[in-house]
Structures are given as structure tokens and as C-alpha cells.
Nucleic acid binder design. Sequence first.
RNA 1: GCGAGAGUGGCGGAAUUGGUAGACGCGCCAGAUUUAGGAUCUGGUGUCUUGUGGCGUGGGGGUUCGAGUCCCCCCUCUCGCACCA
Length: 852
Amino acid sequence: MENQYIPENVEAKWQKFWAQNQSFKADTQTEKQKYYLLEMFPYPSGRIHMGHVRNYAIGDVVARFKRLQGFNVLHPMGWDAFGMPAENAAIEHGTHPGKWTYENIDSMRVQLKRIGLSYDWSREFATCDLDYYRWEQLIFLKMYEQGLAYKKTSHVNWCEDCQTVLANEQVEDGCCWRCHNQVVQKELDQWFFRITKYADELLDETWNLKGWPEKVLAMQRNWIGKSYGCEIEFAVKGTEGKVKVFTTRPDTLCGATFMSLAPEHPLVKTLVTDDQRTEVEAFIDEVSRQDKIDRTSGELEKKGVFTGSYCINPLNGEELPIFLANFVLMDYGTGAVMAVPAHDQRDFEFARKYHLPVKVVIQPEGDSLTADTLEEAMTGAGLLVNSGQFDGVPNEEAKEKIASFLDERGQGRLTVNYRLRDWGVSRQRYWGTPIPVIYCQHCGTVPVPEKDLPVQLPMDVEITGEGGSPLARHQDFLTVDCPTCGAPARRESDTFDTFVESSWYFARYACPQYAEAPLDSQEANYWLSVDQYIGGIEHAVMHLLYARFFTKVLRDLGLVDVSEPFTNLLTQGMVCKETQRCDEHGWLYPEQVEDGKCTRCGQSVALGRTEKMSKSKKNVVDPNQLIAKYGADTARLFSLFAAPPEKDLEWNEQGVEGCYRFLGRIWRAVHDNLELIGKGQNQDSLKDISSELRRKTHQTIKKVTEDVDGRFHFNTAIASVMELVNAIYGCDRNKENPAVLREAIESVVRLLSPFVPHICEELWQRLGYEGGIEAQGWPVWDAEALVTSEVELVVQVNGKVRGKIKVAADSDNTLLEQAALAEPNVARFVEGKQVRKIICVPGRLINVVVSG
RNA sequence: GCGAGAGUGGCGGAAUUGGUAGACGCGCCAGAUUUAGGAUCUGGUGUCUUGUGGCGUGGGGGUUCGAGUCCCCCCUCUCGCACCA
């Protein structure tokens, strides 16, 4: 055996072994319990980055650990393969998006395999495969039948550069999240999924998702934004019209002094008086030129204009002037707000600006506010005043009383409002799933009949990046006969948002080749839910909420039984690295810096802050280079050891070196002892041997098992194996029983195998085993080996450590107290004082409480 | 502003139920080996005093025999949401 650890000599060998033996193929014909482990699948950009390595290394530990524990593990991998980068590449290099994507997949597959991940590659698919997206089209047709997919005209965020619609969450600081171009408003006919129908279920089930991080659940609840309130109708003075408002504060109804409408409100036309028309139209024009993002930015100056009309407060008959205000949004609530300046800060500022009256209707207890002296809105609790029959009622109570009073008179009702909007899924793009719809002049919108599916994405397109989607110009694709009347018709040229593909891929992994339907229900019901899902926190709302929604839709379509896709969710932290900057050359890649100097100009390099690895800051480490230098096992080990999975990981080259050295250390631990432990084959009699090393071995097995199983504390698991390795190096090899030493060394190899599988397989073989390390299963600790006859206890005096004593493990308290007081340094601190009491914590410490 | 999380040596991080703060690793220091360097092995490493002692987990209070951990107040940072009516 070579006495030096050379990763390239072992890694390819074992990757080949796993492939040939189909070691990670999932199987449903088994008595074993199922375990479905999934990491978020990657976009095939062509190169893996350290974020992938970390995500997949974490998942692989869990997959291998569960397999060793005897579970039937499903651990699939595939590609989120539709999307804009493929089209951008086509524009830049003239390569077809399909060709580009499949070539990237081939190259990334090679890179992933080099990491030694335990995937069942037989289940691999890409979402751009016809055999995947055809089923998505069928799901759409079913949703359309159920009224869950519908079309409507809406104002959308539009990116001129990408010539496409962006969801609100795809707009960052008023710019496109992909190309950073300024986003504008545009009116378009769009397909929507009725996610709002599931708003309550999506919200309520967040309380049952015990295996999800609280942070993610909070973000989802926040996103759904359910609020209870009251709808109130205000009659418009002198007309039959009514303005409907939504408010969460019906208790402040009598404090309303004016009304604010969204400038887009449909009633505006009828409300504007001739005197005000010029002013109002100018205002509407001004607001329409601001984009939606600015409208909701919070920095926006509050502006408004009087319409000339008045409405009537249904409770006290007061007349309120109707304003338009730029901060009122048409798509939240009813697009109209009753303004209560005394008790709402925003209304307060607006009222002061336009010199509108302020009327206090809630008095906090022990205070008497007046409208004139108020410096900010009073939003707290109190008793009602100036509210007629409701005076003196605590405001919380008044909310319901006023609402039911209005309800009885047909002027209002208790309602629920959501922030969540329906999901717009139309994208004016080529590289996506075609939406299976046909537009006929006679029959209108006609879904493509099931028998005509799939609507295949044509490959003969020219992608120039100009003039919108290539599909919209592709005559062969567009031209079709109406399936209903046979007249010439036109195909929908929009494709789905790529979040649609990632909303059900986890279910398709259960039956990737199934050719009869989107899902083989038997297989899907066997494997779902995903027992553990692992991915980045950046998907906390969009992807995870859409996937939850789709699961409920699939359930209601009778395709699966489960209601939730992911039982447990782990959101891993980002991979960060220090940035480096040269005055002349800007941000520098790590390899452009030597001894703190820029390699191009020799100037000293300034260290920037530690940030998420990104190409723009050049603080990246290329996994391929890392693996070439140290091997996959070192890359994995560092990713797992440097921080717990959910926290950000700070990249540190010296830390990587340390991990590489540790692997060399275990290599030598086997190599240097191979001859010696050859005499220790018989491990039957180990139970009778009292040995510190044996105790340490079993303590380590226990610790690693508990750290990995459910807790995912891989860093501490690895640390404890390091301790065991230190103990192996530290023991006296002339005295130690060879069988004990063998057990310790074998345990190190077995315990580390989920983390660094290649080196462990190799060492396991060299220890004399054939057929792979998985055959042996996960080691089990011997509880008896953990028992010690003598324990060391800390002795405290008044909570401060003053000495240590060694006593028999089964000593009773009287004996412990005597031994503690007899300890010389303890005795010194106790001397001359009165012992009040002595607290004995078994196995831990003794605390002598003294006074005087 | 609202919501969530975090703050521990020179650094990454341990401490699972309130019970020896700093496991493990990096870095640094010393020794062994080596022609030398590297690699490897061994030991040391919170801090102030160096006396068998004091101080120490962002700051201040509290509960307790005992607090990094529980409670109250404050500071800082990170993430998410935000004219949401």
C-alpha cells in the first residue's frame, strides 16, 4: 500500500465502482422503509460553483447515511433546463438554446460525477425534455378545466430588454433581476394560475410544517398576507354610486375625514367634477408614468388631488371629500381607503399636507388627545369618543360591533383580504414550455385537445434578441386549425414561467419514464412527500410556495394523495469569501494575487469585506480546480466542516489545506497500523477489554450518529472523529490490544464514509473487505463500552470551580460530599465558613454553598 | 416601521435539558526529524497577574447554589417584508 494519500488514484476508481454496481439505484420492491432525499436541481449554466458543491455535499451525507442505516433511499438529480440564459447565449453565440442546454448538461453531469455524489442517475431528466414538459401541458389543461388557469388583462412589469413579463418578486429596485434593465408598466393578456383559491390552505398548513425553518414559514405567511377587516360602502353624494373600502380598523370609522382612491379606480371618471377635471387628469397622467415599483417604494412623496365629489359616512352621515392618492393601489383591497388621519400615520401626513381636518375618535386611557395638538397618528388602543352610540366602547370590541351594525343595515360586512395575488405564468419567451392553447376567431380561446398533445417547441427558430419572442414570428408553429370548428386559427406563442417546471419535478422523479400520465400515482404515493429537501434560502417564497400550491392542485386532480411536498426543509447558507481589490485593476480573482500584491501591476491589494461568492466581485473558487488540486473528498470535507449547514460558510484556503492534511492523517493511521491490526481480526472478546481507546471509539460512534441523524451538525460530527483519530495516534501501540485498535480504525473509516466516500471505500478495501463499505451498514455503539468505573467531578464553592476529584462512578451523595470537602483547595475556600448546602449533579459536579 | 435570526479567543466555530466556556480545525510559538525548506510527529496557545488568584460569551439589570443558555431594557449586524388600508 502506498504510504501517501493521492486522491486521483482512488476517486475515479470508486466512482466507476458505484456506477458499475448501480449502488444508488432506488427500488420499490423492498421491505425497507423509504426515504426521499432531494436537493434543489440546478440550472445547467455549464459550470458548477461552490454553492452547488456545498448543497450537494450536505445532501449526499444524508443520503449515504440513510442508506447505511438500511433505508430505501431515493436520491435523484436532474436539470431545471428552461430559461433565459440559453436564449441569451443563442443571441451572443448563435448556438441554439437546446444545443447549448444539452451540452451544458453533459458537461455539468461530468462535473457532478467527479464529486462522487450518490445519485440514482437512471432517473435523471431535464425539464426541457419533451417527455417532461408534455405532461406539464396536460396538467395545465386539467387546471383550465377546473378554472384554476384563466386569462385576464393586467398591468404587468415589463422588461424591454428581455421583452418579457416579470413577476413582482423578479423586480429588484425597479430593475429586472436578470438583466438589471429598468422595468416599465405594460398592459397585456396573460395566463394566471388561481393560487389565491388555495391561500387559506397554504397559510393554515404553515402551522403544521414542523420540519421547516421558522424563518421560511414566516416569510410565506407574510407573503400570503391574510388580514381580517371590514368592507364598508360609502354612498357618493348626489348619485347612485357607491365607493367600497376595505379597512382593518372599522372602529375608527367616525374619525374618517376624507376618502382616498387609487388613480386607476373605475369610479374616478364619474366622480370628477368639471372644475377639477384638468387637475385630476394631470395627476392621473403623472402617476401613470411612475412605475409600480416606485409607487410602492415607501420613499415616494405622498401626493393627491381632490375630485370635487363627496361621499357619505354610513355611520354618522358626515360628508367626506373624495381624493385620489398616489399611494393607494388598485390591486390591494378595493382600491379605496377611508382616511382616518388621527389614527393612521399615512393619512395624518396627507391631511396635514392638504390641510384636511383631523378628528380624534379613540382616547388612550388616562390621556386626552386633541386634533390640534396631535403630532403624529395615535395607533394604539383606547376607548371610542366622538362616535355616537359607540362612545366609551374599547376599540378592539368596537371593531366587531361597528362591523355587525353596518352588516345589519346592508352597508358593510366582515371580510378577509390577502396580499397574495394570482400567479401570472405567461412569458414572451422561446425557451420554455408552450402554453397549449389555440385562439380561433369563431370559438375564442380553445385549449389544445389532449389527443393533440404535446405542443412541441419548434427547433427551427432564429433567435436574434429583437422583436419579442421568436415563437410569435414562427408561422409554421402559429398556424393551426381550430380543433373545434376547423377554421384557421392561431396558437398561443407564450411559454410558461420556468417556476412551473420546478413546481412538480420532485413528483416526476418517482416515475420519470412513465408514459401514460404526468404521474404514476402508485409510485408517486410511495415516494412522496420528500422526506428531506435541501436548498438555498433564496427560494423561501417563490419556488417553495409554488411547489406547495402545485402539490395541492395535483392532489385535487387525483394524481397524488399528499397535500404537502416537503416534510423537512433545510436551507443552507451561502458560500462567502473575502474580496480583493487593486486600485488599478479593480476586483481580483484569488489567483491574480500573490503575497498580497496584484500579479499584473505589483501594487498592494486591499482586502474587502467577506461576501457571497460571485463573478462580479471575483471572489470565487472554481470547484473543478479545487478538485484537481485536492480531490473531491477534501472539497466535500471542507464544505461540511467549516460551518453548520444552515449558516453561511466562509471560504478559507488554509482551512482546505487542513482538511486535506486530516485525510492524509487517516490514510496513515490505516497504513502505519495495517500489519499490527492484522493480528486483531477477532473482535468477539472485545467486550471484556477495558480500554480508553475502546470507550472513545464507542463515544464517537454515538456522537456522530446523533449529530448526523436529524440534527445535521456535520461540523461537530467530523470534529469528534478527529478526536478519535487523535486518540489513535496518541495510544501506546505496544500495549494496546490489536483488536481494539482495529475497531477504532475501522470506526473512523466507517463513520467518515458518508462525508468522504472515496477515501473511505479505498481504506475499507485495504482493511481487507470486499464489495464496498455500504455492505457493512452503519456502526452501532455498545452502551456497555461507554460505562466507566471512575469519574472525574468538578467541585465548586459558591459556583466557582475550586478543584476536581476522582470517585467511583456509583458513589452515593454522602460519599461525594465527603470527597469534595476533603479536596485540599476546596477545603481552603470552605475553611472558616458555614456550609449551607451541597448540590450534587450526577456525573457532572458538586457545588458547596457556604456563607460567612 | 413590521417580522425572523445572529453577536463567544487572532480566525472558522463547539458547549444538545441551566451544570468545568472556548471541543475540533486554522493561525501562531516551541521541540523532534531533516543538509535546508516542505511534509510529518509531539507539546503549548482567552486575558491580566504570574502566587494555590482576578477578569471573561455585544452593554446594563434580574432570577438561581450555579447563566453563553431563562426573564426585562438597550446597542450593533444580517436577512425578509413594507405607503397593505
